[in-house]
Simulated scan of single mutants.
Amino acid sequence: MPTPPKFLGIHASPPNWLRWLLTIIPFALLVIIYALASDTRQRENPSDKLLPTASKMYDAMQRAAFEENARTGEYQLWTDTGASLRRIGIGLGIAALCGLLCGLNLGIFIGMEHLFLPFVTFVSIIPPLAVLPILFIVFGVDELAKVVLIFIGTFPLITRDIQLTVKKIPREQIIKACTLGASQTSLAYRIVLPQIMPRLIETVRINMGPAWLFLIAAEAIAATNGLGYRIFLVRRYLAMDLIIPYVLWIVLIGAVVDSVLRLILRTRYAWYLESQE
């Protein structure tokens, strides 16, 4: 019997050490290429700002994280991080809650599906960034407009995903529950709801990227703090030694949140992951 390929191929099954190696290789190549390009430019022009060295980026982040701002008395990195996390947490959290409830009811009750699903689909087609000026006019340039933008950008997608997940629940299960005397409320919130909670976590993971995009766009236009605000503020000075670490910091925050959500899936909803294999 032929052995399965260890590296490439549709039936490849590399050992764990090789999986880790394959994961690291693209990142290592990116770091090496950047280091070589940065070193070349710095040799030609030590004042070059386009590709700063690792030491310059470290110094910039050191100042942002641990040096108190003389004007505001705040630590820039932590103030910006807290402001951005608060906005994205509120916006995506409300979108997830509303999307769960709406998607659940649209998937179970046919009348509600015909009444509201076309409207939700219509809203999901509207580019959220296109209505950003409208949001600033209606809600002002404070926190509410940024939260509403994140909500508008993620709520319709979460709703449609949950609704499709409810539709995939075997019809026989619904019929049996009704036959045994389950009310419509019990059917929705005691039988169907627990089954779609892991999918809610999955769709929140998927919508983290768009939520960050909407947040950074809103902060870039009208804000006095936040990670997106800081990136667009220092770009006028070509401060790549701060912009690049800020971008990497956003990536790190996203990776940590994604890992936490995956951990919740593995520990609390292991049955769901097994059903997806």
Rank of each mutant, 00 (worst) to 15 (best):
M1G: 06
T3V: 15
P5R: 07
F7L: 09
F7Q: 02
F7N: 03
G9H: 01
H11M: 12
H11C: 12
A12G: 00
S13H: 12
P14L: 03
W17L: 01
W20V: 13
L22N: 02
A28I: 11
A28N: 06
V31G: 11
S38M: 00
R41G: 02
R41K: 12
R43N: 11
R43I: 14
R43F: 09
E44C: 05
N45M: 11
N45R: 08
L50M: 05
A54Q: 14
A54R: 12
K56Y: 07
M57Q: 02
M57I: 04
Y58P: 14
A60V: 02
M61R: 05
E67N: 15
A70W: 08
T72L: 11
G73I: 03
G73H: 03
L77T: 10
T79W: 10
T79E: 15
T81S: 12
T81P: 02
G82D: 11
A83K: 06
L85T: 08
R87C: 11
R87L: 14
R87Y: 06
A95Q: 02
A96F: 01
L97Y: 03
C98S: 11
C98L: 10
G99A: 02
G99W: 01
G99E: 00
L100H: 00
G107M: 01
I108W: 00
I108S: 00
I110Q: 15
M112S: 07
F116A: 09
V120T: 02
S124V: 03
I125Y: 10
I126V: 15
P127Q: 05
A130L: 04
V131G: 10
P133M: 06
F136G: 15
F136Y: 15
I137D: 15
V141D: 13
D142M: 12
E143T: 14
L144C: 13
L144S: 14
I150R: 01
F151E: 06
F151H: 04
I152R: 04
T154N: 05
F155W: 06
P156Y: 02
I158L: 06
I158F: 05
R160M: 09
I162H: 03
L164Q: 11
T165Q: 08
V166N: 00
K167S: 08
K167Y: 04
I169M: 00
P170L: 00
R171A: 09
Q173E: 08
I174Y: 08
I174C: 06
C178H: 13
C178T: 15
S186Y: 13
S186T: 13
S186F: 12
L187M: 04
L187C: 02
P194S: 00
P198L: 01
E202S: 13
R205Q: 10
R205T: 08
N207V: 03
M208S: 06
G209I: 01
I216S: 02
A217T: 11
E219I: 04
A220V: 10
A220K: 09
A220M: 12
A222H: 11
R230Q: 14
F232N: 14
L233Q: 15
R235H: 15
A239L: 09
A239M: 07
M240K: 07
L242V: 13
L242Y: 10
I243N: 06
P245V: 04
W249I: 11
G254K: 10
V256T: 10
I264K: 09
R266D: 08
